[in-house]
Amino acid sequence: MSADMRTRLSHVELPNPILTAAGCGGSGRELSVFYDVSRLGALTTPSITLAPRAGRPTPRTAETPSGVLNAVGAQGPGVDAFLTSDLPWLLQQGARAVVSIAGGSVAEFVELAKRLTEQPGVSVLEVNLSWPSMEDRGRPFAADASASAEVITAVRAAARFDVPVFAKLAPDVPDVVAIARACVAAGAEGLSLINTVPGMAIDVDAARPALAAVTGGLSGPAVRPLAVRCVWQVHAALPGVPIVGMGGVMTGRDALELILAGACAVAVGTANFQDPFACPRILRELEEALTARGIERAAEAIGLAHRPSERQPR
């Protein structure tokens, strides 16, 4: 017997908990060469910006031990092209779209939220708070609870009432729970954890930074313990808030780890680079892992590792 894999992001029901992570699943067309993208719980789009963006110079990515450093810089077509081409294509496939947005100011986030939810089609808005704030000399919104809350309040007010707003947080803050609380208090229906962590690599032979942008965001299995810790802490503090967990998920077992920590859905990023079939494979492996443990519904596993220890003090 196979497990019931359905899950919910706020009131939005998904057929299964495996999503692509923002910026790691392309527009959906690329992966559709390998499998039907409607089989995903949802496809998270790359962070959509108002204007088209050419991104950062190359080299943009570097391989590090069990990780990838990237400074892609959200290369993308901008919101107009997304609305006329990418989103309709996804909907035509029967896929669900979690749309990630990135802006340099609160006003840009508001404009994006309005434009994207004027028409139906967006299942969830994910707010990329790791974006540098032009109003705060390039400091990421996610570094500060009040800056994050300001964006979320504005996006929540601008987006259609029935589109849940998820705040995507960075792990490199002293107190991720404080930022999570501020976002939820500002109206976020859910949270996405974690974005990449700033890192750097040097090409020792050339004696130069490996990335043209010098520093980049680290992803992949190297960051998984950070993701598990963040999801665990936030779920413990805010048990009712849905969390999309991500960070270094390569297998169904890794996905289960984040679910046990408190995630109700799991996004797969870097694994798509190594294996174009990563998402359907991880979904199958997760289903097998649940069944092997006698768990009939994926929802029963959410936060299961938080249950009190059975060991009694002597």
Binding site: A51, P52, G138, G217
Partner: peptide, 23 residues
Amino acid sequence: GTIPFDALGAPGARGPVEGFRER
């Protein structure tokens, strides 16, 4: 190895503050 200034979406007035990285 560069983003030519006239490339579609090249950093301009609307881009992020230079010297800071977005993730």
